[in-house]
Amino acid sequence: MARPSRKDDILQAALALFTEIGVDATTIEMIRDRSGASIGSLYHHFGNKERIIGALYLAGTGEYAAMLELGFKEAKSAKDCVKLLVTSYIDWVIANPDWARFVLHSRGRVEAGEMGDQLREANREHFARILEALAGYREQGLFREMPADCFASVVIGPTHDFARNWLAGRALTEFAGCRELLAQIAWESVRA
Results as ranks from 00 to 15, higher is better:
Arg120Thr: 13
Glu145Gly: 05
Gly54Tyr: 03
Asp24Arg: 04
Ala55Cys: 11
Asp91Asn: 15
Thr87Glu: 10
Asp80Glu: 07
Trp99Asn: 09
Ser88Phe: 03
Trp166Gln: 04
Met1Trp: 12
Val23Arg: 06
Leu70Asp: 15
Gly113Pro: 02
Ala59Asn: 10
Asn48Gly: 07
Ala13Lys: 02
Leu172Arg: 15
Glu139Thr: 02
Glu139Ile: 10
Arg109Leu: 13
Cys81Met: 11
Thr19Val: 09
Leu167Lys: 08
Glu125Tyr: 10
Leu58Thr: 08
Ala55Gly: 05
Ala152Tyr: 13
Ile21Arg: 14
Val93Gly: 01
Thr26Gln: 08
Arg109Gly: 03
Trp92Ile: 00
Leu142Pro: 02
Arg138Ile: 10
Arg138Asn: 07
Asp24His: 12
Ile53Pro: 03
Gln118Cys: 05
Glu139Leu: 14
Val154Trp: 06
Pro4Tyr: 07
Thr87Val: 12
Glu121Cys: 01
Leu15Ile: 06
Asp33Arg: 08
Ile90Arg: 00
Ile94Lys: 14
Val23Thr: 15
Pro147Ile: 05
Thr26Lys: 02
Asp149Glu: 09
Glu69Gln: 13
Ala95Tyr: 00
Gln184Pro: 01
Ala163Trp: 01
Tyr89Met: 10
Asp9Trp: 04
Met146Trp: 03
Leu134Val: 11
Ser189Phe: 08
Arg129Lys: 13
Thr26Asn: 06
Ala122Arg: 13
Phe162Cys: 08
Ala168Arg: 15
Asp117His: 14
Phe151Val: 01
Asp98Val: 00
Ser5Arg: 07
Cys150Asn: 09
Leu84Gln: 03
Tyr89Ile: 10
Gly169Pro: 07
Asp161Leu: 13
Trp99Pro: 00
Arg6Gln: 09
Ala95Ile: 06
Tyr64Leu: 12
Tyr89Cys: 00
Arg6Val: 02
Gly108Lys: 15
Ala14Arg: 05
Lys73Tyr: 11
Asn165Ser: 14
His105Leu: 09
Tyr89Trp: 14
Ile185Phe: 07
Leu68Met: 13
Gly177Phe: 04
Lys79Ile: 09
Ala133Thr: 05
Thr26Ala: 15
Glu111Cys: 09
